[in-house]
Amino acid sequence: MVELSTPAKWALRVVVISYVFLLVGWPMITLIQNAFSDGLGNFQAAFSDPDVVHAMIVTIEVSLWAVGINTVFGVGMALLLVRYEFPGKRALSALIDLPMAVSPVVIGLALLLVYNGRTGWFGPTLEAHGIQVIFSSPGMIMATCFVSLPLVVREVVPVLTEIGDDQEQAATSLGANAFQTLRRITLPAIKWAIVYGVVLTMARSLGEFGAVKIVSGNLIGQTQTASQAVEQEYNNFSQGEAYAISFVLVLLAVLCIVVVSLLRPKEPSA
């Protein structure tokens, strides 16, 4: 295997480490410094405000819903894509990846156009039946689902593909029906893939900003999310509070990454 010369190796390390440090590392340090610039003062100021606390709760609630829905959809979709053949499968598989490439603003606009209570395609009908989507939780949940849609699917599909359906066939030959096979054999086998997908979805959902901003209407104390609260605090010159809330959000995100990192078996490396 190619081994770089020692000076080249060191030069490469320096370049890479400096780049990542200047781009991500140092800004993170700045975040911590600014969040704790007043000891715990910023945190107290931020979280004594009931609206901020409400924003955090809204964020967590919406994220949990999105995680739940996407996990069910993700596992189901993965099973369909890997274990069956049907017309249009390839197109569907590609479309599921679409949310990775679409702008959050476009996602928000798209949902707005369909579910908006006045001029939307379905909005007025839904509101007539008492279901408000835009400027309300359902819309926020949908927006969050949209942005994190592929995450569980993409974690589960490779694992399902790799383990093959031998075990499932064996279970069938031993008398298990479809549900028993799913519960006792398939799901336990993809357990960890589901866990990774869930954690990634959680991280992405907690952090969603653009799409939710359009769909929620940013109604303080009602539909404002934590990330929108950050923007508001900053624009109100309460920078300390903005940093405090940001710190909490980043901490949660980093926790998610670290958890996945620790759980996942080590990647083979040279």
Binding site: I163, D166, Q167, T172, R184, A189
Partner: peptide, 19 residues
């Protein structure tokens, strides 16, 4: 259906229930 045939099947790559 295969479940109802009461036939025992052994696979080339064992198909053990890993977990």
């Amino acid at each position: 259906a295969p479940q109802k045939r009461n036939v025992g099947f052994v696979f080339q790559h064992y198909a053990v229930f890993k977990h």
